[in-house]
Each structure stands twice: as C-alpha cells, then as structure tokens.
Amino acid sequence: MAEYKKDIILISFVLLIIISLFTVSFTIGDPGKSTNGKKNAAIYINGELYEKIDLNEDKEIRIDTAKGYNIISVKNGEISVTGADCPGGTCINTGAIHENGSFIACLPHELFIRVETDDHDKEDELDAVAY
C-alpha cells in the first residue's frame, strides 16, 4: 500500500476537484435545465454577438465569414448547423440543441451558438455569485 501512497493522494485530489466543480456549477445554475420562458439562441462570431434569433420561428440563415460558411437552421424550437465547410464537422455532428445553456461550437470558423432565455440575464447573475 505504501508503494501507491503518492498515486492515491493525487487521484483523491483530482476527484475532489472534479466533484467540487460539478457541485459549484450545479449550485450557481444548471446549464442543462430548460425553462419555459421565451427561448433565444445567440450566435457569437470571434467572441462578439452576431445575432440573436428566436427559436420559436423556423428559419434558415447562412453566415459567411473570411474563414468559411455555416448554415444554421431553426426548426421546431431547436437550432442546428446543417452545413459548413469547416474541416472537422464538429458543429454539424453536434446536432440540434434546445436546452438552455447548451451550445454548438465551430472552432475553425470561431463560431459559437448558445441557447439563452430572455426572462432573466443569466450572465449578470453568475458574475454576482462569482466575484
């Protein structure tokens, strides 16, 4: 047992960090929790807000940037990336999302889509807890 002393200390430390991170993130707000409020999806490009779209209206938009294109479609309250010329295709494989806080990221095009609700500003609330 003495042989594994360092291993056990390190692994328990890692487990402690993981458990506490989960606990803290669930205490300050469950990102997977869906709300009944009006649902929006925010599209960020290069860290800046590009467009906010209502998930209750079906539509399809095409975003062209210097790095390539992404086709984003909204259907039945869900948003998904249906076409892109990025090399990995992670954004398409992520599929359709609708839960508050869930996201689609296309890292090659620096594109980030996140489902948000309008009824309360979650980011400000979290900032108040964190600092």
Binding site: P31, E110, A130
Partner: peptide
C-alpha cells in the same frame, strides 16, 4: 474564440 461565459 474570445468567448468567455464564467458560470457556464
């Protein structure tokens, strides 16, 4: 991506 959302 310069995207930072602390709690999430």
């Amino acid at each position: 991506t310069k995207t930072f959302i602390p709690g999430f």
